[in-house]
């Protein structure tokens, strides 16, 4: 599944590479990216292909970066799925969770 994020960053040294590096290190691959820079901020629109991990957790990991003003998860490209975690054996225990549509700074 591919997930789209819209991320607004401070115009600060290293802000974009810090964000992209985090996404990669957390096991997601950026498959498409648009970027627009203004003196006030930097806006990124990303498509990330995930592995087995939860995009909501990735969103919260991005949100806690100091340079990140705002993260919004846009519509996922595949059908919404139950909350997933590593560990298939326990998946059946979990009730489906609605996707978080709008994030705010932690």
């Amino acid at each position: 599944m591919t997930t789209r994020f819209e991320i607004t960053l401070d115009t600060a040294e290293g802000a974009m590479i810090r964000t992209l590096g985090l996404i990669q290190r957390r096991g997601f691959t950026v498959s498409r990216m648009d970027m627009k820079s203004t003196p006030q901020n930097v806006q990124l629109r990303l498509e990330v292909a995930d592995c087995e991990r939860c995009p909501e957790v990735l969103q919260r990991q991005i949100e806690r970066l100091h340079d990140v003003q705002h993260v919004r998860q846009l519509t996922a490209l595949a059908a919404a799925q139950p909350h997933r975690r590593i560990g298939r054996a326990l998946v059946s225990l979990f009730a489906p969770r609605p996707r978080v549509a709008v994030g705010s700074r932690a």
């Binding site: 909350h83 975690r85 326990l90 979990f94």
Partner: peptide, 24 residues
């Protein structure tokens, strides 16, 4: 996958990004 297989979880943490990272 086999950790505390019958347990529900209450997760109390300062870091919201840790919630649901490895265990619901």
């Amino acid at each position: 996958d086999e950790f505390a297989p019958n347990a529900r979880v209450i997760h109390i943490d300062v870091d919201a990004a840790e919630i649901g990272k490895l265990r619901h």
